[in-house]
Deep mutational scan, measured.
Amino acid sequence: QETIEVEDEEEARRVAKELRKKGYEVKIERRGNKWHVHRT
């Protein structure tokens, strides 16, 4: 599992979309004022 930390929701969604295109399962999680995209 890989976690990518980004600054805002828009970027989290963009990253998640790219990963989904490559066939990964992803989960977006908010952590305080950061966003984490988990590749599962």
Rank of each mutant, 00 (worst) to 15 (best):
R20L: 04
V26P: 12
H38E: 08
T40N: 05
L19M: 02
E18A: 03
E29P: 00
N33M: 02
G32R: 09
E25G: 08
T3C: 13
E10L: 12
G23C: 03
L19K: 02
W35M: 02
D8T: 15
V15M: 14
E25W: 04
D8L: 15
E9T: 03
K17S: 07
R39E: 08
Y24C: 08
E9K: 07
V15Y: 02
E9S: 12
E7I: 14
E29Y: 04
K21I: 04
E2M: 03
E2C: 06
H36Y: 11
K27P: 02
E18K: 06
L19G: 11
Q1S: 05
E11S: 12
Y24G: 12
R31K: 11
E2K: 13
K34T: 08
E7Q: 15
H36C: 15
E7H: 14
K34F: 10
R20I: 02
E7W: 11
V6S: 04
T3H: 15
E29L: 06
K22P: 03
V26E: 04
D8I: 14
E5G: 06
V6H: 09
K21C: 12
R13W: 02
G23P: 03
G32N: 00
R39M: 02
R13D: 01
K22G: 12
N33Q: 14
V26C: 04
E7A: 15
E7P: 15
Q1C: 09
G23Y: 03
K27A: 12
I28A: 08
A12V: 02
R20W: 04
R39I: 06
E5N: 12
V6M: 14
E29I: 10
R14F: 06
H36V: 10
E29V: 09
V15T: 09
E5H: 10
H38T: 13
V6A: 09
A12P: 00
D8E: 14
E2N: 14
Q1W: 10
V37E: 00
R13L: 04
H38C: 15
E5D: 08
T40V: 01
K21W: 04
E10A: 14
E18L: 04
N33D: 06
N33C: 11
K22M: 05
K22I: 07
K34M: 05
A12K: 00
K22S: 06
K34S: 05
E2F: 09
A12G: 08
Q1E: 07
G32V: 08
K21M: 11
I4A: 02
W35T: 07
H36G: 10
K17T: 14
E5I: 13
G32L: 07
R31V: 10
I4Q: 02
N33R: 12
Q1K: 15
E18F: 07
Q1L: 08
Y24Q: 01
R14M: 04
K17G: 12
Y24R: 06
E10V: 15
N33Y: 01
E29M: 08
E11D: 05
E9L: 11
Y24A: 12
V15Q: 07
R20G: 12
I4H: 04
H38G: 12
G23R: 06
D8A: 15
K27L: 07
K34H: 09
T3E: 03
